[in-house]
Design a protein around this nucleic acid. Structure first.
Lengths: 232, 232
DNA sequence: AAGTGGTCTAGACCACCCC
DNA sequence: GGGTGGTCTAGACCACTTC
C-alpha cells in the first residue's frame, strides 16, 4: 500500500505546521522515527526525503534532519547585496571566505567571461549563512586586470560594495541562468549536503557601467532556503 | 563503501555522454540494470535518482527511465510565448487542454489576483510538450469580467496571443516567483511523475498595458527540462 | 498476462560528528 | 565511544502500463 508513506508524510507535516517542531529544530533520529511510525528506516527515509523535496525540512550530513525556516526572497536583478537583502527580511547574514586564488582562466571560465586571450582571474570561494545556517556556496571569478590589489581587501564583505568603493565599478547589467541540478562534490562538502543532493544553481555574468564584463559568479543554494522573485 | 554508488553513477554517465543511449531513449529496466551492475534494486534506484537530480535522466511513472534532452532556455520576461520560444530553439511544441471551468475565486487565488470582492474566474489547466515529451503543467486563472466569451475560443493556442487579438490586452508587466518544490498530486498525475517528485514551480502575475492585473499563472516544470535565462 | 516502477520488510556495516 | 545518517543486501507484494 502506498498509504503508509502518505500517512507518515501527512502526520509529520501536521506536526511541523502545528509548531510541535520549530524552525531549525532537529527532528528525532531516523531510527527513533521509524520506531515511532512502526516502519523500517528505508521507508522512513523516503518520507523524510519527500518532505525535503517539498522544502519543509532539510538535512545536515550525518547530523540529522531539521525544520526549514521560511525561504529568503531573492531578486537577482536588484542592486541590493546579500547582507542588505537578508537584513531587510529581518534575518541575520554572515559570510565566510573558504579559498582565494589567482590563476590563469580555465577554458570553461574563459568562455563564460568571453576572454579573447589567456588571462589571470581571481577565484573567490565563500559560503553564506542566514540565521547561522549555511545556505549558499558562491564562487566569484574576476578578471584580474580589472581588480588590482583585490586580495588585500576584506572579502567577507559584499564584493558589489567593494567594486564600487575601491574601483568605482557599478553593476549596470547582468545576465543569469537558474538551473535545478545536483550539488558537485566540493559544494556538497561546503554546505554539509550529502553528495548529489538537489541544489539550485545560478550562474551570473556582471557588466559595469561602461558595458565591460567584470566577473562571473556561480551560486549554489540549498533549494529550500530560497525563492527567486522578479518584478519586471 | 560509498564507492559502489559512485562508480555506477560514473559508468552510467559515461554511457549517456558517450551517446550509447540517446535522447529520450529508454534505459534498461531497474531489474536488468541491477543485474548488470551486480547490485540490488534499491542501490540501483539510488544511482538512477542521483542522475535524475542532476538532470541527466528522467522517469515516467511505471514506464521507465529515459535520457533527458537538452534543457529549454526560458526567459519569463520575454514577450515570446511558449510555442514560439520552443520553435526558436528548433524543438517541437504542443499544448493539450485538460480542464476549463469558471467559478468564484478561492481565497488563495483571490489574494494572488488582489481581488477586492468575490468574483468569478476562469481556470484553465493545460499540459505542454516539447518533442512529444510532456514537460509542463500550467494553470491560468483569469478574472472573468475582463475576458467575456473566453471559453468559446481555442485554448490550446497561446493565451498571450489570444489576449492581444481578441481583447487588445498586452502583457506590459509581470511579476513572478521561482520555487523548487515537490509536485502536488494533480500535477504529478498530469506529468507522469511519481507523487512528491521534484519540480520547478513558477507563479506569475500579469498586468496589461493599462496596469490592470489580468491573470495569474502557475507553471510546474519537469526540473530537467528547463533553465531560466534572464538578461536585464 | 507479462513487465515496469513504487513501496516495503528486516536486517547489516561504514564514515563521520559530537561528546 | 556512542549516535547519526549514508550505503547496502536479498528478498517481497502492489499498482499500473503495455501488449
Amino acid at each position: 500500500m502506498k498509504t503508509q508513506l502518505r500517512s507518515i508524510k501527512g502526520i509529520l507535516k501536521e506536526q511541523i505546521a502545528g509548531g510541535i517542531y520549530t524552525c531549525q529544530q532537529k527532528l528525532p533520529s531516523e531510527r527513533e522515527l521509524s520506531e515511532l511510525f512502526q516502519t523500517t528506516r528505508i521507508t522512513m527515509k523516503d518520507a523524510l526525503i519527500a518532505l525535503e523535496t517539498e522544502g519543509l525540512i532539510y538535512r545536515e550530513e550525518r547530523r540529522g534532519w531539521f525544520v526549514s525556516p521560511p525561504r529568503l526572497r531573492y531578486n537577482p536583478l536588484s542592486r541590493s547585496h546579500f547582507h542588505r537583502m537578508v537584513e531587510e527580511q529581518q534575518r541575520q547574514a554572515a559570510t565566510r571566505v573558504l579559498k582565494i586564488e589567482t590563476e590563469l582562466a580555465s577554458s570553461d571560465i574563459g568562455k563564460v567571461l568571453e576572454l579573447k586571450s589567456i588571462q589571470p582571474v581571481h577565484r573567490i570561494q565563500r559560503v553564506r549563512s542566514i540565521d547561522n545556517r549555511v545556505v549558499l556556496f558562491v564562487e566569484n571569478c574576476l578578471i584580474a586586470a580589472l581588480f588590482p590589489d583585490l586580495l588585500t581587501h576584506d572579502l567577507s564583505q559584499s564584493l558589489t560594495a567593494l567594486y564600487d568603493k575601491r574601483y568605482g565599478y557599478q553593476t549596470a547589467r547582468s545576465r543569469f541562468d537558474v538551473i535545478p541540478t545536483a550539488a558537485p562534490e566540493h559544494v556538497a562538502k561546503a554546505l554539509n549536503l550529502a553528495e548529489g543532493q538537489q541544489i539550485l544553481k545560478i550562474c551570473r555574468v556582471n557588466y559595469n557601467q561602461d558595458g565591460v564584463l567584470m566577473d562571473c559568479e556561480f551560486e549554489y543554494w540549498r533549494p529550500d532556503a530560497v525563492m527567486i522573485q522578479i518584478d519586471s
